[in-house]
Amino acid sequence: MNDSQSLLPPNRKVATALAPLQLSGEHHLCPGCGHPVAWRLLLEAISELHLENKAIGVVGHGCYTNIVQLADIDFLQCLHGRAPAVATGVKRVHPDAAVFTLQGDGDVASEGLAEILHTAARGERITAIMLNNGVFGDTGGQMTAASVVGQRTKTSLDGREPEAHGYPVPVADLIASLPGAAYVARGAVHNAGSIAKTKRYVKKAFEIAAQGDGFTFVEVLTMCPTGWFLPTADGPDYLEGTFEKTFPLGVLKGG
């Protein structure tokens, strides 16, 4: 085990465990969960853009809600699905603030689809982040409106089947079709490369919103081995092999 940095050959630290705005690294999310990785890249993006004292976060209900305790940012935790509407009110009162929402696919594609589409159509200058793992994680892994065809969940144990359960809602594509949306991208956190790319998408989204060009949206595919009934190590491959087929990564609009 390495002792403190001083016992090593001359060196420099190239990566800290936590993002600058992160108060703690302790959390109760499952082993192999992608959300904490998304948290950190979001907080890194905010501090790298020097938005610490301008950022106001509006967070929905899900496993990701825990970020409200870990991040040194002004946060409002709101009702399931309502974040984009709440953020609209915040932004209209503080036009210069970097207002963003953090939700899951259940919060957006299921509970709050009207909210996000109306907010995008209105071109609110906010950045909306949707963590998509295709399950309601914090209630134990039920199907959401974004669960992919064939995906096994607690409410589709034999796999999502169009005949009975219909098809996943392509939220990012819907948003990209709205004139009020200025930037739409879809990233993932299943490997170092996708993490770096996703962080660039998030920074771009904040910049474009700050320029006042319109609504910006970044969907982030994250692993949920628990909800996918998989060993933790298989999460990244399942994400790439299954989710990415339904939700291809990249910039869908603007940027």
Binding site: A55, V68, Q69, D72, H94
Partner: peptide, 24 residues
């Protein structure tokens, strides 16, 4: 009231019906 001004100061604000507060 939230205005972002306390971000990064260690005393950032929080509005939450569960009132869990922050790690620090």
């Amino acid at each position: 009231a939230l205005d972002g001004s306390r971000g990064g100061t260690g005393r950032s604000r929080q509005i939450w019906t569960w009132a869990m507060g922050k790690a620090n």
